[in-house]
Design a protein around this nucleic acid. Structure first.
Length: 379
DNA sequence: TTGCCCCGGAAGTTGGTG
DNA sequence: CACCAACTTCCGGGGCAA
């Protein structure tokens, strides 16, 4: 585990806690994208369990340990700058040997206790179903092959085995999208001058599951938006398991209206959850989400592009992919461009967007939108 | 003809607020 | 608890290019 990664994940926790504080530019520190291991490293988004949640703590990698600590740092609103990063650099076996006192001395009484509680819970969980959760090497190989075959188009040729690190994730993220947790989040936050919520727009989606599909630098900037089968046929899901699960659920017609918020059923309610302020802003608005994709061209990766930056005219290049991202952010796996575009059309009345007649997939920011102008973004 | 997109009405849900 | 904002879902209709 590189110390820079340690810094990133902990800095990020602080960035989420103190979004108004100026953050150092992490662009240069951002790990190169593309490898699944690096994608999953940042998958501990917004108080969502990371891969570690599905693995016996004894088998955690350094990365898993770090994600787990990061999760609790964020949930307890612990000031990550107070952490000694050397304490975070250990594997699961080492971690499991630590007593409550040791953890409390390393991480302070509050966080240490929380970590101990979590660790004991997880250890107890996996003590009973170890045989179910641990795949044999041959099973891993088999699953790896399946994933490689199924998702090969999502990866660059140089990618290593998908199961190089733990890739399993909860199929339904838990809760609290406000509290994102990845180094991309911090990046997003700092580059979004008007990001009033410190939300996670791109990052949540990028990090957690798309296994590089949007990030593949070789992805052509398709003009045909979703005629590209890459984006039209495959839900953006982490694993085949999740994929199958989602598919079966979505064949049922769902009721109208906003889908119910997933309830936290993962047994972590007992941890200190960051309480939403009574006046906490709502989550990201769609137009802000769109804006942030546009003003972060490094991470945009051909999803959208500016047609006329000065006038705020932009175009969806991969409309369905953007919709999937939006759906992921909203914990709504059945989001489509059709639905997203309906929401976009409502913005016309409010003058957040202006109509662009006769051009497919093209919209324009209106006078009631902010944060996209060059004067505002600084670039 | 088909597929994709645009349009806007209608009805629904969730979460914040008073 | 009512109200409201912000979507989400569904739908019928229409345009356009292949």
């Amino acid at each position: 585990m590189a110390s820079s990664e340690l810094s990133l994940i902990l800095n990020n926790a602080n960035a989420n806690l103190y979004p108004s504080e100026p953050q150092p530019n992490l662009l240069s520190m951002t790990a190169p994208m593309g490898r699944l291991s690096e994608m999953t490293f940042s998958s501990n988004n917004n108080s969502t369990m990371g891969p570690w949640d599905l693995v016996n703590p004894q088998m955690w990698t350094r990365q898993n340990v770090l994600e787990w600590i990061g999760f609790h740092v964020e949930n307890s609103r612990f000031d990550a700058s107070l952490l000694n990063m050397n304490y975070c650099d250990m594997d699961g076996i080492t971690l499991c040997t630590m007593s409550k006192e040791t953890l409390m001395s390393m991480f302070g009484s509050m966080l240490g206790e929380q970590l101990h509680h979590s660790l004991e819970t997880l250890k107890a969980r996996y003590a009973t179903d170890l045989s179910e959760t641990c795949l044999s090497e041959s099973e891993l190989d088999l699953l790896d092959n399946i994933l490689q075959n199924s998702f090969s188009y999502m990866h660059g040729p140089s990618l290593g085995p998908l199961l190089e690190t733990v890739v399993v994730q909860p199929s339904i993220p838990s809760d609290n999208s406000e509290n994102s947790f990845s180094y991309f989040d911090e990046y997003t936050n700092q580059l979004t001058p008007e990001s009033d919520h410190g939300y996670d727009s791109l990052t949540e989606s990028f990090q957690s599951s798309h296994t590089g599909s949007f990030l593949n630098p070789s992805s052509p900037e398709s003009n045909s938006s979703d005629s590209d089968p890459e984006y039209s046929e495959m839900p953006y899901s982490t694993s085949t398991k999740n994929f199958v699960k989602q598919e079966s659920v979505e064949t049922k017609k769902r009721g109208r209206g906003r889908p119910p918020k997933p309830r936290d059923s993962e047994g972590y309610e007992h941890f200190i959850q960051p309480k939403k302020s009574k006046h906490a802003p709502r989550g990201t608005h769609l137009w802000e989400f769109i804006r942030d994709i546009l003003i972060h061209p490094e991470q945009n990766q051909g999803l959208m592009k500016w047609e006329d930056r000065r006038d705020g005219v932009f175009k969806f290049l991969k409309s369905e992919a953007v919709a999937q991202l939006w759906g992921k952010k909203k914990k709504n796996s059945s989001m489509t461009y059709e639905k997203l575009s309906r929401a976009m059309r409502y913005y016309y009345k409010r003058e957040i967007l202006e109509r662009v007649d006769g051009r497919r997939l093209v919209y324009k920011f209106g006078k009631n939108s902010t944060g996209w102008r060059m004067e505002e973004t600084g670039y």
